Simulated assay, not measured.
Amino acid sequence: MNQPSIAIDKLLNKLPQLKSAIQKVIVGQDNIIEEIVVSLLAGGHCLLEGVPGLAKTLMVRTLADALDLPFRRIQFTPDLMPTDIVGTEVLEEDHATGKRFFKFNKGPLFANIVLADEINRTPPKTQAALLEAMQEFSVTYGGQTYPLDRPFFILATQNPIEQAGTYPLPEAQLDRFLLYIKIGYPSAEEEVQILSNTTGTRQAKVEPVLGAAEIIQLQSLVREVSISEELVHFVALLVRATRPDTSTVPYIKEWVRWGAGPRAGQALILTAKARALSHGRYAVTMEDLHAMAFPVLRHRLLMNFRAEAEGITSDMATAELLRSVERPKGNL
Rank of each mutant, 00 (worst) to 15 (best):
L169C: 05
P170Q: 11
E171K: 07
E171P: 04
E171W: 05
A172P: 08
A172I: 02
Q173P: 04
Q173R: 10
L174W: 06
L174K: 06
L174Y: 05
D175F: 02
D175V: 03
D175L: 03
R176V: 01
R176P: 01
F177G: 00
F177M: 01
L178H: 01
L179G: 01
L179R: 03
Y180C: 09
I181M: 00
I181G: 00
I181A: 00
G184Y: 10
G184V: 08
G184L: 08
Y185V: 04
Y185Q: 09
Y185M: 07
P186C: 10
A188M: 07
A188D: 02
A188Y: 12
A188H: 11
E189T: 10
E189P: 04
E189I: 08
E190S: 04
E191T: 05
E191G: 06
E191M: 12
V192C: 01
Q193T: 10
Q193F: 02
Q193R: 15
Q193P: 01
Q193V: 05
I194N: 04
I194F: 06
I194V: 11
I194H: 02
L195S: 11
S196H: 15
S196Q: 14
N197S: 13
T198V: 12
T198E: 10
T198C: 05
T198S: 14
T198N: 10
T198R: 13
T199E: 07
T199Q: 15
T199R: 15
G200I: 08
G200A: 09
G200Y: 07
T201C: 05
T201E: 14
R202A: 14
R202I: 11
R202T: 15
Q203E: 14
Q203L: 12
Q203D: 04
Q203V: 13
A204Y: 08
A204D: 11
K205R: 12
V206G: 02
E207Y: 04
E207K: 12
